[in-house]
């Protein structure tokens, strides 16, 4: 991409050395250009952000006029709401299983793909394909048909004379079955890892070879440390997404059986858009926000210890 523009630059500006700073970049013009985002940010992000915080201290339910109830929502959530506890528990479990598993698969496949070979891009395309279907209903439908009691996976098991497994009906298994879906869609993390792998200087691999390091050793002391910034970025973005997962749980299991796949996103949807308990749901959304904030903060803070930046972490 960059050399394309560099070529064009060479073609169109033969020696524009004279740097005449004639153009006074007027602030007003700049604000005009960014005005769509600025308006959108204030009206559709900042105001709702503050508003949901305020709603979280009210009993707003779209029927009668809202009144300020102080911390009542929060107190109820933490002391009298077993559904919240259950939902938070399965959501944490989901995030802690799905995100690392996805990144491990993404990294392994990226390493396999990191060879110079004709036709390798075909494989990259194939592995990327599931992730473009992302949160589509069709994929959730597919998952349901694959893992239902008389579904494809059990049919495969019986092919090997294994007993059928109740993938979606067993409360101890359903969450795991749902977790496999985002793992299957590892494409975008894989592309990031692949780009990172291509940046690893070949000298480092040669030096490691000269030192007689095994391939496993080279991975852990050369490749992985250089990839840690990408691991950190992926961890954070995937974690934020995973905490808000909705479609899979909603379409595949509808939160069941026995609320074993009742993810946080579903609970928010039910409280806000089924029961219209807007104040209560706002409080729950702020709790989710704070949980994500703490996770992000911890990842950033501890990353000083495990993420490696070649230029001391100050690239720009």
């Amino acid at each position: 991409m960059t050399h394309q523009s560099a070529q064009a630059a060479g073609g169109q500006t033969p020696g524009s050395e004279g740097k005449r700073r004639k153009r006074k970049p007027g602030s007003l013009v700049a604000y005009l250009y960014i005005s769509p985002w600025l308006i959108g940010f204030i009206v559709l992000t900042l105001v709702p952000f503050v508003a949901s915080f305020i709603y979280s201290f009210t009993d707003y339910n779209m029927v009668r006029k809202q009144t300020f109830v102080g911390l009542a929502n929060y107190i109820e959530i933490f002391t009298k709401d077993p559904v919240f506890v259950q939902s938070l528990r399965v959501t944490l479990l989901y995030v802690v299983i799905a995100v690392p598993l996805k990144l491990i698969v993404a990294l392994l496949v990226a390493m396999l793909l990191n060879v110079k070979m004709r036709g390798i891009s075909i494989y990259r395309t194939i592995y990327y394909l599931p992730s473009i279907l992302g949160g589509s209903v069709a994929v959730s439908v597919l998952w349901r048909f694959m893992f239902m009691r008389e579904g494809l996976v059990n049919e495969m098991l019986s092919y090997f004379s294994l007993p059928p497994v109740n993938w979606l009906g067993d409360p101890n298994l359903a969450l795991f079955t749902i977790t496999l879906l985002p793992v299957w869609e590892f494409g975008s993390s894989m592309v990031l890892f692949l780009a990172g792998l291509k940046q690893v200087p070949a000298e480092l691999y040669e030096a490691s070879k000269v030192d007689g390091a095994s391939r496993v050793r080279t991975f852990f002391s050369v490749t992985l440390p250089l990839l840690t910034p990408i691991v950190l970025f992926n961890l954070i973005m995937q974690m934020i997404n995973a905490f808000q997962q909705f479609t899979a749980a909603f379409v595949i299991t509808d939160g069941g059986p026995m609320k074993s796949t009742y993810l946080y996103g579903m609970m928010l949807y039910d409280n806000a858009f089924q029961f219209f308990k807007m104040g209560y749901a706002s409080a729950q959304s702020w709790i989710l926000f704070l949980i994500i904030l703490v996770f992000t903060f911890v990842l950033f803070k501890t990353s000083n210890r495990w993420a490696h930046y070649e230029d001391g972490g100050d690239g720009k």
């Binding site: 992000t45 952000f49 973005m237 934020i240 946080y264 749901a281 702020w286 926000f289």
Partner: peptide, 14 residues
Amino acid sequence: MLPDAVIMIPRYLL
């Protein structure tokens, strides 16, 4: 990095 969940209710009401 702002979770949509935290703004969706006021946005909906708006």
